[in-house]
Design a protein around this nucleic acid. Sequence first.
DNA 1: CGCAATATTGAGCTCGGTCAAGGGGCGTGG
DNA 2: CCACGCCCCTTGACCGAGCTCAATATTGCG
Lengths: 232, 232
Amino acid sequence: MLTQTLNTQAINTQIVGKIAPGHPVTDQFGAITGHVGLVATEFSYRKDEEIYGEDEPAEYVYQVVSGAVSSYKLLSDGRRQIGAFHLPGDVFGLESGPAHRLAAEAIIDTTVRLVKRASLEKAAGTDVQVARKLWAMTASELRHAEDHMLLLGRKTAMERVATFLLEMDRRLAVAGMMALPMCRRDIGDYLGLTLETVSRALSQLHAQGILGFSGARQIVLRNRQRLQHLDA
Amino acid sequence: MLTQTLNTQAINTQIVGKIAPGHPVTDQFGAITGHVGLVATEFSYRKDEEIYGEDEPAEYVYQVVSGAVSSYKLLSDGRRQIGAFHLPGDVFGLESGPAHRLAAEAIIDTTVRLVKRASLEKAAGTDVQVARKLWAMTASELRHAEDHMLLLGRKTAMERVATFLLEMDRRLAVAGMMALPMCRRDIGDYLGLTLETVSRALSQLHAQGILGFSGARQIVLRNRQRLQHLDA
DNA sequence: CGCAATATTGAGCTCGGTCAAGGGGCGTGG
DNA sequence: CCACGCCCCTTGACCGAGCTCAATATTGCG
C-alpha cells in the first residue's frame, strides 16, 4: 500500500513555505499550508504507477510538482473514464469524506508534494480561512466536472477534441506550444471517445491548418478562433 | 429577475427550525440553519419556470420542499445537459463562488425554501461546523458528478437507463413504486440520450418483465437484481 | 369526454466504434 | 552518433448503436 511505498521511496521532507517554482502567487498548497506550518513530503511515481485506488482511504492530499496525473473510474469490464488531468501546481486527492472517489495514476514520471489529510482537517477546524479554501478547491473541481458532463453528454467528437485542445492550451502552453503528457488513449478516455477517433479529429484539424505538430504530442494552435468556433 | 418574482409570489417567511416532513433527521438545511437562527423564505414555481439562469449571481441557496427541479447547461444550438435532478429535501444552488454554474428550473410545480447565500457565508465565518457542512454538500455534488461522468462517457444506453432507474428508485420510491416527476426528454437530457432511446430502453425492460408501468411515469421495479446487472 | 401534450414505435441513416494493417518517432544500446 | 526496435500513432474499411424523422397511440387534465 501507499505507506510501504512511502517508506521505500520518500525523497524529501520539509516545512512547507517555499512555493513551487512557476506558481509563486496562486499556489494552492501554499495558500493552505503556508501560514499553518504543515509538514509536506515530496514523493515520486514512475509512469503508469498507481498513486491511490478508487474507494481507498483518503489519507493524503497531493500537489503535482512535476509530471502529470490522471483521476479515473473503471467499469468492471475495463472501460475507463478519466475525470481530470492534474498538471504541475494542481492539487488532487482532496476529499471531504473518508475515501477517494476516483483512482489516480501518474501518466508520466511525476513528483508530488503531499500532506496528511488529517492535518488539513485539523487546521480547518481552527482556521476559517483554511476551511474556506478547502471548500473552494472542491467547488472548483465540481465546476470542471459540470463542464465535462456537458461535453460527455452532448458534444460531438470534433467539439470534444476542440474543447480539450483549448483546455490544455490554457493550462500548459509555453510560448504558444503545448507538450501533451498523455497518449491518445488517455485523451480518448477523458473525452469519452476511442483513441482512433481522437487521432482522426487531430489529423483533420492538422489538415485544415488549425494546428501544427512537431511530434505527436507537441502541438501548436495556429487558429484559436476557429477552434473556439468548433467547440460549439 | 428573481427579486421581482420573489416580491410578487413569496408565500411564507419563518425562522428555520421546523424540519420538512419526511426529512426529520438528516435535513440538510436544518443541519446548517437550525442552530444559527437563519431566516428562510418559502417560495413556489410553476412547471417549466426558471429558478435561476446559468452565470446568474448566486444570491440564494435553495431546498426543495415539494416538487422537482433540474440543473442544466445549454449549448448555443439548444442541446442541453441536465447535471442533476433535485427532489424534496435536496439542497441546490449552493455555490462557493459568486455565480451559478448551471441554470435551474422547476420540472413540475415546486415549492422551495431559500436563504440568502450571504447569511450562510457569514455563519460559516463564525461557526466551523457550518463551514464543514457547506464543504460536505459541495463534495456530495461532486461525487454525483463524477459518477455521472462515467455514465455519460462510457455506459451504453441500456446501462444508463438502468442506472437512472436504480437512482430514482433509491431516491423517490414509496412502497416499491416510483412516480417520476420528469418527462422522457428530461431523462434523455440527463442521460445524454434522445427521448426515443429512453423510451425504447424502458419498453424493452417492460417486455422483459424487469419493470411494470401504471401510467408512463409510474414505474415499479420488479427485479432490481437484473437491473443492477444491466448497469455494468 | 375530448383534446393537447407526452409517449411509443417504426424505418432508415450516420457518426463514431471496431478490427486491422502499416508508419514513424523516440529512447536505448552499441 | 547511429541504428534498431518498440510503442504509439495514423489510416483504412466496415459495422452497428443510437439518432432523426415520421406516424400513431396514450394519457392525464380540463
